[in-house]
Simulated assay, not measured.
Amino acid sequence: MNYNYIAPYYDLLSRICFLNRQQLAHKIILKHLNSGDQILWLGGGSGWFLEDINKLNIDLEIDYVELSTVMIEKAKARKVSNINVNFYQEDFFQFVPNRNYDVIITAFVFDHFLEKECEILFKKYNQFLKKKGKWAYVDFCEEQNFIQRFLTKSMVLFFNLVAGIEAKDFPKVNGLFDDFELIEGKEYFGNYIQSKIYKK
């Protein structure tokens, strides 16, 4: 998987295709961040949301893990003077955290992988989430109507071609959070995009 080729255009394409709803779906996360939180952010992309987090003006430390060199350079260029961000240009499967976290953020991450890979990632990082910690999950819905299925197939084919993603469909991952408490959820773009805050 390599987003370097599409990185310069990814944010613009996202805003156009989904009428800014992917960006709005992140906003739910903001009110669940507290001063002193240690945060693991997997797949932050270009880091545009760092600027929104920065506006909270609270003491936060973020371990920001992103594979794409182009994306992470864009993220590093963001003006985020109020938060401490540690950037790691690494594969999610290879990165090894050196701390436990109050919050884990995965926004449009699991949809890139096969179900068995999602299970591996979840189990790997869940062990680093503190008891009563929060997992911010933002992604496409699992139950889709005909039009949504068409959109899904089109997106998957596109990213197969431009980013080398192996998955042929979005994985079913809701069951991974069966032992968590859903404390807030919102839907966007019909119900195609979902934001969920889970508590361990």
Score class of each variant (00 low, 15 high):
3 Y>S: 05
4 N>D: 15
6 I>T: 07
9 Y>G: 01
17 C>P: 06
20 N>E: 13
22 Q>Y: 14
22 Q>M: 13
27 K>E: 08
27 K>D: 14
33 L>A: 08
38 Q>S: 11
39 I>K: 02
40 L>P: 03
41 W>D: 15
43 G>K: 08
44 G>F: 10
44 G>A: 14
47 G>L: 11
49 F>C: 08
50 L>P: 09
50 L>R: 05
50 L>S: 06
60 L>T: 07
61 E>F: 01
62 I>L: 07
63 D>P: 00
66 E>S: 11
67 L>G: 02
69 T>S: 15
69 T>V: 14
70 V>C: 04
77 A>Q: 15
83 I>V: 13
83 I>G: 07
83 I>T: 05
84 N>R: 12
85 V>E: 11
87 F>T: 11
89 Q>T: 10
90 E>S: 12
92 F>A: 07
95 F>S: 09
96 V>R: 08
98 N>S: 00
99 R>N: 04
99 R>T: 06
99 R>W: 03
103 V>T: 12
103 V>F: 02
103 V>Q: 13
104 I>G: 05
104 I>E: 05
104 I>C: 03
107 A>W: 08
108 F>V: 03
108 F>K: 06
109 V>F: 04
110 F>K: 07
111 D>P: 05
112 H>K: 13
114 L>K: 14
119 E>R: 14
119 E>N: 14
119 E>K: 15
122 F>H: 14
122 F>Q: 12
123 K>S: 09
123 K>A: 06
124 K>R: 14
124 K>S: 08
125 Y>T: 05
127 Q>G: 06
128 F>R: 03
129 L>S: 11
132 K>G: 00
134 K>S: 08
135 W>E: 03
139 D>E: 10
140 F>L: 11
140 F>P: 05
140 F>Y: 14
144 Q>Y: 08
144 Q>I: 08
144 Q>A: 09
149 R>D: 06
150 F>T: 13
151 L>V: 06
153 K>D: 09
156 V>I: 15
156 V>W: 02
159 F>R: 05
159 F>L: 06
160 N>W: 04
162 V>F: 05
164 G>H: 00
167 A>V: 13
167 A>P: 01
168 K>C: 01
169 D>L: 10
169 D>C: 14
170 F>I: 04
171 P>C: 10
173 V>L: 04
175 G>L: 08
175 G>E: 12
176 L>W: 14
178 D>S: 15
179 D>F: 12
179 D>H: 15
183 I>Y: 02
184 E>Y: 00
185 G>D: 03
185 G>F: 01
188 Y>A: 13
188 Y>Q: 05
189 F>L: 07
190 G>K: 10
191 N>Y: 06
191 N>F: 13
194 Q>N: 03
196 K>Y: 04
196 K>D: 03
200 K>E: 02
